[in-house]
Amino acid sequence: MLRIGYVRLRDPESASDTVTLKALGCHVVRAEEPAPDTDESAVLFSILDFIGARDQLVITRLVHLGPSARCVLEVLDRLEQRGASLYVYEPELNSEGPGGRALRAALEAVASLEPASAGRRRRPAAQEIRELQRAGVGPVEIARRLGVSRMTVWRKLKAVEA
């Protein structure tokens, strides 16, 4: 089992989290500082693409996974699809077993109370989509990264070409 630590560097407290994750036995620790105008997490998405069955994503606090319960649920879904699990250091939570079911139920309850737009990105500009395409990112991946549908990506690309 591979333990992968992840921390989003948003506040001074987060800087010490990398040391904590190493002390928790993480084989790999990745940190990122997202751009101030977005909550996109390229490093987190690459971890979720890489993580394998029986591996574990380790974080110090749930807030590192995103600004809303919906974002955290999305990460949990992707981990489950890959056969991996989540471990949160503070408060101590695990996505496996009965505690995992309780965690998911609590997050779903909170997500149901959030406004529909909570945690959603702004509408991406056509130029932003075009830049990702030029960087070699495919339309499906662009849609996933930007939190929009594939059709939106295709429409914006078509508009730029016209």
Rank of each mutant, 00 (worst) to 15 (best):
A116R: 15
Y89S: 11
A109Q: 13
S95R: 05
V160S: 13
V140T: 12
A53S: 13
R10V: 04
L65V: 02
R123T: 15
E128P: 01
I59G: 02
E92N: 11
D77R: 13
A106P: 07
T38K: 08
V137W: 07
V7P: 03
R61Y: 08
L146W: 00
R120V: 11
D17Y: 07
G52T: 08
E40K: 08
L2E: 10
T152R: 07
V72C: 09
K156M: 11
L9H: 00
A53H: 15
L107I: 06
L157I: 00
E161S: 12
A53F: 14
G83V: 01
R101H: 12
S14M: 02
L157N: 02
G5L: 00
L103G: 06
P98L: 15
W154M: 10
R104E: 07
V43W: 00
D37H: 12
A15Y: 09
L62H: 06
I47R: 00
P34R: 06
G66W: 03
V137Q: 06
P12V: 03
E40T: 10
G99F: 10
I47Q: 00
E74T: 13
G52M: 11
V58G: 02
P36W: 07
Q133E: 13
S149P: 07
L113D: 14
E96K: 15
P115D: 15
R61S: 05
K156R: 14
G97L: 02
E13H: 07
Y6C: 01
R123I: 14
R122I: 04
V148R: 01
T38I: 03
E128C: 02
R104Q: 06
G83C: 04
M1P: 08
R130L: 13
A35N: 10
V88A: 10
E40P: 04
P115Q: 15
R54G: 05
R3L: 06
T152W: 04
M151A: 14
G97C: 04
Y6V: 00
S14I: 00
R121A: 15
S41K: 10
R155Y: 03
A135N: 06
I142F: 01
E108T: 11
E80T: 09
A102T: 11
L2W: 07
C26V: 05
E13Q: 12
V72Y: 07
T20C: 07
G136C: 07
Y89N: 13
R78Q: 15
R150F: 11
L57E: 01
L21H: 01
S46C: 01
G100W: 03
T60N: 11
R145V: 02
A159N: 08
E131F: 12
A69G: 06
V137L: 15
G25L: 03
S112L: 07
